[in-house]
Amino acid sequence: MAKQDKRDEIVRAALELIAEHGFHGAPMALIAERAGVGAGTIYRYFENKDVLISELYRELEERIFPLLMVGYAPEKPIRERFLHLGTGLLRYFIENPLDFRYLEQFHNSPYGVAHRRDKLLGENGGRDVFRELFEEGVAQQVMKELPLVILFALAFGPLLSVARDHVLGFVVLDDPLLARTIEACWDGVRR
Rank of each mutant, 00 (worst) to 15 (best):
H24K: 14
R81I: 14
A153G: 07
Q4L: 14
A32T: 01
M143G: 06
A29Q: 14
R34P: 05
E33R: 15
E80Y: 06
L173E: 01
R116F: 02
G125F: 00
F46I: 03
L67Q: 01
I18W: 01
R191C: 12
E132R: 04
G137C: 11
G38A: 13
V162N: 02
L133M: 13
E136F: 15
L60D: 09
H166N: 05
F23P: 03
V142M: 05
G122W: 00
Q105G: 04
S109Y: 06
T181E: 02
I182S: 00
V162M: 10
W186P: 15
L98M: 08
F130H: 08
R190F: 01
K76Q: 10
F106V: 05
R58A: 15
H107E: 03
G122V: 02
L133C: 10
A2D: 11
E75I: 07
V142N: 11
A139V: 11
P176Y: 00
G38D: 13
Q105T: 02
G188Y: 05
F170V: 14
R12V: 08
K6T: 12
P66V: 01
S109L: 07
L148E: 12
G22Q: 03
G86D: 01
G71E: 03
E20I: 04
V37N: 10
G112D: 09
M143W: 09
R131M: 06
V51F: 14
L146H: 09
